[in-house]
Nucleic acid binder design. Structure first.
Lengths: 114, 114
DNA sequence: TAATTATATAACTATTAGCTTATATATTCA
DNA sequence: TGAATATATAAGCTAATAGTTATATAATTA
């Protein structure tokens, strides 16, 4: 078969991280477009440290990249990560979450990255 | 797109369940062939209640089916479950675990279901 | 340069999850 | 029917996880 294979251990770690609604939604969102911490705070209506801690876990596994743009730090799914091919088919089955960003856009609280 | 879609909430619950090495390996094994509790106990070298509790969680979500054959209860991935199409592509990326059953076969501890 | 804004991190707390031990139930077999 | 085998479940313990509060760092702006 042409299927890629991943060690069970690693797969379980990744799936556990994805098995959290906040992190899963984050990944789905930033598979398309970069988002900064303060946007996540508004989208998920939770505290900034909570968001940062979720992002930290995703970053530690290499699933996301961060990029500072001035005072903001933008996060984006790391498509070069060796496990991207594992998570991509999962993300593709999830409902699009872009409406969450559109809501920010309408409220004028979207941070447009240059 | 022709992609199936699943609610975020449900997806997160399923991924969390799959994010455990024991349960993930179980699912991969019984995607092909039925296994009974005592086989899992031997494969994972853990206690019977622990195995039963893992299976219980998978069963509660409808991911697996059980079928009694005499004194044994065999478990199998439920391919009729509405979320099977969600988990199948994940399982397909995992390395085949059948060698674990082959080991039982050699040791003579495989329970052959009629 | 001081105040403000964005983010990260550390410490603490509460909740959850997994395992163990003990026990109950169901089936088989002598 | 009584003993043995297979499985489930409940209760309790411990470890892991997620969130909160407090604080530190970095960049921006007045």
């Amino acid at each position: 078969m042409l299927q890629t294979t991943i060690e069970m251990e690693k797969a379980a770690v990744i799936l556990k991280l994805m098995g959290d609604k906040t992190r899963l939604t984050m990944l789905k969102l930033i598979d398309n477009q970069a988002c900064c911490v303060c946007e996540f705070v508004e989208i998920f209506q939770t505290s900034q440290p909570s968001i940062s801690q979720h992002l930290r876990k995703l970053k530690d596994l290499g699933l996301v990249n961060e990029e500072r743009k001035g005072q903001w730090i933008f996060y984006l799914v790391n498509k070069n990560n060796e496990y991207y091919s594992f998570i991509k088919p999962i993300l593709d089955q999830l409902p699009n979450q872009d409406y969450k960003l559109n809501e920010l856009e309408e409220k004028g609280t979207r941070i447009s990255c240059c």
